[in-house]
Design a binder for these strands. Structure first.
Length: 814
DNA sequence: GACCTGCTGCGGCTTG
């Protein structure tokens, strides 16, 4: 029975009061929506108590029924194991204090086998878990029984999942629950920073969207953003991303606060900052630590505990600490370098002052001069509550195939039933008959091209029409490779004693000889031997040596950030400099205007410079690195079709360069309609090395779809091996089964995810409306210099690079 | 004078 009166909420209010907290309107709103059996989305800033709001709703409803509930009632899903652990302990305490006789279970990959078995026998009333673990439960024979009594599912940090295949996996699990149970299951997403709330709610609820309620907290979370300004813009470099020269400005901030998180954008930067801090500020030795995804998990857990316990003053970290410290606020946050997106910046800011009513504070440390504009944009976007949208994924055949095998490994399935609930999701609502048949065929025979190999015919059709995996080895292999996260193979770094330190890339270790030293995890290490994907090391006294670099996804400006950035530059072009950041950078932008120009919003700036390298042409769409990479390839391709010229290309978030060693004039080529929308897709396919990228994407897709077995836990596979088997399958599909949906998906993902097709189209449309502002220059400008250096860096070592830069400066001073 | 570049995330087994 639903509750209706204010009085029914009083246990929750009392509980809040007993904690010394204050319940906000949105919490009461959330409770009454929940108590009226609604589903929906709860949107409130970090640290506002939204977690408790929704949890208390579950508890209040449970309290209505004095008998102890049988079986699993509530599932709480989080994207992180660490978060699951935190929430589990908070929920247990809450239940005890409210007098609810419920068992709260925790199930992630960390859960012991014993505990798992106990759960299978006797499910707790509430389970805190991850999307992957839910699917593991779905792969058990008794899955229908396990979830038969389910009343509610809460998906925490939904914005982290929407927009990824993990989100699609969650959609499928929710659809399964909904169709298993005739009674409606209350489904709530909890989310802080997301631009497309409504769409996110739609994705959560699929075809049950009509019952949706969006509860939006009207709390104005106070966030103070302060840019650490240089004394003058001249002291900030034009290029670079480390920001180490600003360290003297950081130390006073560390002194003034008990605990600070210092966010950097990349792992090697974290290592470098950590090293520099303890070298330059020896007082902080032992009070600073570092945290990133390639460090040993235990070390990371220790660091999280230590900052919470006040043993550390500062942790230098990457996004690895974006989440996961939900119940552990720090005093101060510093962001080094541009975060490339508003939501990410906001999220990090929220790590400080993480309490209802408290003000969060974040310092932004620009590492090169143009980042001052980014600083101004971030400040404004946060003040006006603008956040990026998370685009939900559609028709991921790989995830669907995995899901079907999961069900076949577990209870087995009848295709018609499953098709109905699969199509009730947002991701697969447009799945065609043909595509569905293809998926069924694929899991039962291996499809057109793989039917000769038994191992791909995973699912058997029983006499009664049930689709089932009977082969034990197939079932085990499937359980071993569930989930949608495909990691790159890595090299483990261990002491000779066996103590684990962390992971680096194969290519980094490959360049070292035995005895060579390097700096990693805050230690000087020497390589002893490298065998079986493990680097054995010992401590070294030598202080020199390289710092590992990890390859990974390159962040690009989000479109929200790019839009605002173009506006700021437009403002600058009419000498409008608002805010301290813009005032500080004004002299540099004026220099840009003097040397070349500042484009208005309806203009596209193109700069042409001749050097002894040849003709450099720079375009500035200000659209983020990803889009620029494609545009650069497109422009180079379209010119080269008209006459045989070869180009080298480079790009950053602001613009891109095409360079040829020939002496050309750009206006000869502008008539070619370089940015035309005609034949766009074909030209892009021809210009970028589409197949190479698609092959890499295909590796992930093939792994998710269960075509490539990643090996047994702990054993691992070398990169070469993995790539080899996926290349083989790719080739088989290409030759014998070109209509293969997984192949199609790989090409599609390259275009839509890597190259942001929709953004590309938008920016081309804009460019076509813009007037071209062509400048022929003899000296590099603040805009083009960083791109120029970026291109060189790819070809030269550091020493050679500094010589080149010196030479370049001499060249241009003439 | 300017330069060290690009994140995160989960899950599973064997068998003495």
């Amino acid at each position: 029975m639903a509750l209706k009166t204010q009085k029914d909420l009083s246990p929750a209010l009392n509980w809040f009061n007993s904690k010394g907290w204050q319940a906000f309107d949105f919490q009461q709103q959330c409770w009454s929506a929940y108590l009226h059996c609604k589903s929906g989305l709860l949107n409130a800033p970090t640290g506002s108590g939204k977690t408790y709001a929704i949890w208390l709703a579950c508890v209040l409803q449970a309290l209505q029924n004095p008998k102890k509930a049988k079986g699993l009632q509530v599932i709480w899903v989080t994207p992180l194991r660490a978060l699951a652990k935190d929430i589990h302990s908070a929920m247990s305490t809450c239940c005890r204090e409210m007098g609810l006789d419920w068992e709260i279970g925790l199930r992630t990959g960390d859960t012991s086998q014993k505990e798992r078995q106990a759960q299978t026998k006797n499910m707790p009333q509430a389970l805190v878990t991850t999307p992957e673990s839910i699917h593991v439960l779905l792969a058990q024979k008794n899955a229908p029984k396990t979830f038969a009594n389910l009343k509610a599912v809460i998906v925490d940090e939904w914005h982290e999942l929407v927009g990824s295949k993990r989100g699609v996996q969650m959609e499928l699990a929710l659809a399964y629950f909904r169709h298993l149970n005739p009674k409606p299951i209350q489904t709530w997403a909890v989310s802080a920073t997301i631009g497309n709330l409504e769409e996110a709610a739609k994705v959560l609820l699929g075809d049950q969207y009509e019952q949706c309620e969006i509860v939006k907290a009207k709390i104005d979370k106070k966030i103070e953003v302060e840019t650490i300004l240089p004394d003058s813009v001249d002291t900030l470099p034009w290029i670079g991303h480390l920001g180490l020269n600003m360290l003297p400005r950081i130390t006073p901030i560390l002194d003034e606060h008990t605990s600070t998180l210092l966010f950097t954008n990349v792992r090697s930067q974290t290592e470098i900052w950590y090293k520099t801090i303890i070298e330059k500020v020896p007082d902080l030795m032992g009070l600073v630590a570092m945290h990133h995804g390639s460090l040993d998990l235990q070390v990371r857990q220790w660091v999280e505990e230590a900052i919470h316990a006040g043993k550390l003053k500062c942790v230098v970290c990457t996004s690895s600490l974006d989440l996961g410290v939900d119940f552990r606020p720090v005093d101060m946050v510093i962001q080094v370098g541009g975060p490339k997106g508003v939501a990410r910046f906001f999220q990090r800011a929220g790590r400080s002052g993480h309490r209802p009513g408290a003000t969060s504070k974040i310092y932004f440390l620009p590492t090169h001069s143009l980042e001052l504009i980014e600083a101004a944009v971030l400040k404004e976007a946060i003040a006006t509550h603008q956040f990026e949208s998370r685009t939900p994924l559609l028709l991921c055949y790989d995830v669907l195939v995995q899901y079907l095998v999961t069900l076949a490994v577990g209870p087995g399935f009848y295709p018609d039933e499953v098709r109905a609930h699969v199509q009730s999701t947002n991701a697969y609502k447009d799945l065609t008959d043909q595509e569905w048949q293809w998926c069924l065929e694929f899991i039962s025979t291996g499809g057109n091209s793989l039917s000769a190999y038994d191992e791909f015919a995973k699912v058997e059709i029983m006499n009664d029409g049930l689709w089932k995996v009977n082969n034990r080895k197939t079932a085990m292999r499937h359980r071993l490779s569930m989930g949608t996260i495909v990691g790159d193979p890595v090299v483990k770094v261990k002491y000779t004693s066996g103590t684990y330190i962390g992971t680096v890339e194969e290519s980094f270790i490959a360049q070292l000889k035995e005895g060579d030293t390097f700096w990693f995890a805050g230690k000087n290490l020497a390589l002893v031997r490298f065998k079986d994907l493990t680097a054995q090391v010992r401590n070294s006294k030598k202080k020199t040596g390289p710092i590992p670099r990890w390859g990974g996804g390159k962040a690009s400006f989000t479109s929200l950030l790019s839009d605002q950035l173009r506006r700021k530059i437009h403002d600058a072009s009419i000498s409008k400099f608002e805010g301290v950041e813009m005032k500080t950078i004004a002299p540099l932008l004026e220099k840009q205007a003097r040397l070349s120009a500042l484009p208005k919003e309806n203009e596209l700036l193109i700069e042409q410079i001749k050097s002894d390298e040849g003709t450099h042409i720079y375009f500035y769409p200000f659209e983020g690195k990803y889009v620029h990479e494609v545009l650069a390839a497109l422009v180079a391709y379209r010119i080269s079709v008209s006459q045989p010229i070869s180009f080298s290309i480079a790009s950053n978030d602001y613009g891109f360069e095409v360079l040829t060693d020939l002496d050309i004039e750009i206006e000869d080529f502008l008539e070619l309609d370089l940015f035309s929308m005609e034949n766009l897709l074909d030209d892009i396919k021809a210009s970028i090395n589409n197949t190479e990228m698609a092959k890499r994407k295909f590796r992930d897709i093939a792994t998710i779809a269960g075509l490539i077995f990643q090996g047994y836990p702990g054993k691992g596979m070398t990169y070469k091996h993995l790539q080899a088997s996926s290349t083989m399958i790719y080739k088989v599909f290409e030759d014998y089964d070109p209509e293969n949906l997984l192949l199609k998906q790989a090409h599609e993902e390259v275009l839509s995810l890597q190259f942001e097709r929709s953004r590309l189209t938008e920016s081309l449309e804009r460019i076509n409306k813009q007037t071209i502002l062509l400048k022929k220059l003899s000296k590099p400008t603040p805009f083009c210099f960083p791109i120029m250096v970026d291109r060189l860096r790819e070809r030269f070592t550091t020493e050679m690079l500094s010589e080149r830069i010196e030479k370049m400066q001499l060249d241009f001073q003439t």
